[in-house]
Write a protein that binds this DNA or RNA. Structure first.
Lengths: 366, 366
DNA sequence: CTATAATATGAGAACGTTCGCACATTTTCT
DNA sequence: AGAAAATGTGCGAACGTTCTCATATTATAG
């Protein structure tokens, strides 16, 4: 009922108890210099007896390394980030690192605060899903200060940092091609498409036309739109902006509304492509409520494979991103940087898989 | 191409630049003692000019507080923990705390390592989903050392720590009662039921019979079994151990196998209760593959509401646990403790909601 | 107008480690 | 054998803060 913080056994006490200097005790316990076996045993036993536990703050203060990686995720509640984080956690843990987690909710101000906090806590590096792909002075500063940065899911223009992404454009193109191959000519797209500094959808279309766009530093949903355009063009089909459902904000509500708009058009699309998990769930809501039969009334392909897609009937075809692997790769890159790897930044594009399921059929004859 | 770690602007430099002592600069920048407005301005401006950022390690070393909470989740990849974590993150962030995350995979050795690492990193407190409900000397030690511990999802016997749980027994009882009310007499249960020190299912049944069981320190799946038994008893129905699907290990594979066993019994259950998200997904797999119609061939209620349950047809009735709220509550309790609240440990039992959906019907006449 | 309290500042010691250096002792190389 | 290298140990100074204490100065009260 009395003693609270009498715990703290320091290296000094261990040293005293073992009859050596703190330096020697430090060497044994920290495992960094020379020391005789006999001394090692003595110190270790003393530490054991006193219940010594190192104070990693003190160590970090002096070594300048905390063995902690800061992670800025968009929203840890989404299966997307949760899986990536799992990958990061597994790899870092194996290397004895901890992870300090924050959510940005994809908002640059939140990201800024997060990065600031993490850096003040002296993390050894930053793994981050960035919210601003063109400026990000806070990340430029981090890189300049020698704090390794690894980007996930999207890359920042002119930032000398590693990035682990997926070739969204190719994967999306592949999906749409499957649909055109099946005979579809009116293919709807539902995507977030929130931020693009270049303007609106038609601006984007002309920018694509001009070929003046670096798809690797676009937000994923724009890359996926890019692939959609690619596929339609190679199939010789026109691009109807009315079939492009731009949700504009990352919310289930808005996605439902946009899907509903698409599916209630006079000339209903015969196939739908949803550009991420949230959109897919929202689309399913609408499809179910409109009583549309998949794939008879509507073929469907989704970006991101959610658990239910494999066991509802029919199964829903999906692009499955290697999420845990992305996290692992990002963490491995980070560990290499922390250990001093100074080679030039890597852009890693992992290959997604395609889960073919029963949601694709030829369009009904009209 | 040359300068790497020239960044570090310390309080000493700021002090020099502002023409005051480090103590004064510290007071201004740390916001803790007295200082004149004029001095404040001068120091702040100096800090601004030099781009000063406090080193939270140094601060933590001396104050003994890191403004960091350690979290030990089972598996952050599961929506269950992801949601809880989100709640924790929101509340702690608002209070300026960071969270250091680890996964235990529900294994006590992993938990032990995690707790050790977190404590060495000097976290101000530990929020943990414990893997061992009867001993846990490492947590007893934490509490003894004055490191606040808040348990989530389940409580530990004789540990003086706060806990945030859900009344699993009551929620489960409620579900089963809905099924018996609908006329079901053969109700199957699929649950993890991995660890219980008392023995096997029949031992558990007799222990329940004797009323010698504290349900609040059982693992959730056992509490849910308890509720299942409660409900059948009050309905005057016998308990058939053959209807209790004990998966025994937390794996989708095993859950599928066990569900299959139940659904291929000679006298197939007319209703099924799955005791958590993983079990539910596995059960759906099997139900779909056996081509059973819900609710005609089988009524279904699931513990934990997954997104697909609301948009597949028919919808699946589910117990929805207030996960984010649990995380928030745990974090709030933690913050109170960190700020010195020494009142006696609280056991918080949040109320789950029930999402009634079309997966419940009367059993087919035999 | 003095006594007391509140405000304001600085010097220097913490906090618990590791690091640089000096100096012994042992091993290894010509 | 002697020189050089590797190994082993301790002292005391870092690391970048906050804290304690001493000492002013100013405001408030009696």
């Amino acid at each position: 009922m009395n003693d609270k913080r009498q715990d703290k056994v320091t290296i000094t006490e261990v040293a005293k108890h073992a009859g050596v200097s703190t330096a020697t005790a430090g060497r044994v316990l920290g495992g960094y210099g020379y020391s005789r076996q006999e001394i090692k045993d003595r110190v270790k036993q003393a530490a054991e007896e006193l219940g010594y536990r190192p104070n990693l703050l003190a160590r970090g203060l002096i070594t300048g390394k905390t063995k902690t990686i800061g992670v800025v995720a968009g929203d840890i509640q989404s299966p997307f980030y949760a899986s990536i984080l799992r990958g990061i956690a597994d790899v870092t843990r194996a290397a004895g690192f901890g992870i300090l987690l924050t959510n940005s909710d994809e908002q640059i101000e939140r990201e800024l605060e997060a990065v600031q906090l993490l850096r003040e806590k002296q993390v050894d590096g930053l793994i981050i899903a960035p919210s601003d792909l063109s400026g990000s002075p806070h990340l430029q500063a981090a890189v300049r200060d020698g704090c390794p940065v690894v980007l996930i899911d999207r890359a920042i223009k002119n930032l000398a940092a590693d990035a682990v992404c997926v070739d969204n454009r190719a994967a999306s193109r592949d999906c749409i091609t499957r649909l055109t191959d099946a005979g579809h000519r009116r293919i709807g797209l539902v995507a977030e498409l929130e931020r693009w500094e270049g303007g609106d959808i038609t601006d984007f279309l002309t920018a694509v036309e001009d070929g003046a766009l670096d798809s690797s530093t676009l937000f994923p949903s724009w890359q996926r739109l890019y692939g959609y355009i690619d596929a339609l063009r190679s199939a010789g089909l026109p691009i109807d902006p009315g079939l492009i459902g731009r949700v504009g904000v990352y919310s289930s509500e808005a996605a439902r509304k946009e899907t509903q708009r698409l599916l209630e058009r006079p000339e209903r699309p015969t196939a739908l492509f949803t550009a991420d998990g949230l959109m897919s769930a929202a689309a399913m809501h609408v499809i179910t409520s409109l009583d549309l039969q998949i794939p008879r009334d509507l073929s469907l392909i989704c970006f991101d494979d959610l658990d239910w897609m494999s066991f509802i009937k029919p199964g829903i075809a999906a692009v499955v991103q290697p999420l845990t692997e992305m996290g692992e790769a990002a963490a491995r890159l980070m560990l290499a940087r922390v250990e001093g790897d100074g080679s030039k930044p890597q852009y890693l594009a992992l290959q997604p898989k395609f889960a073919a399921r029963g949601s694709i059929a030829a369009p009904l004859a009209l």
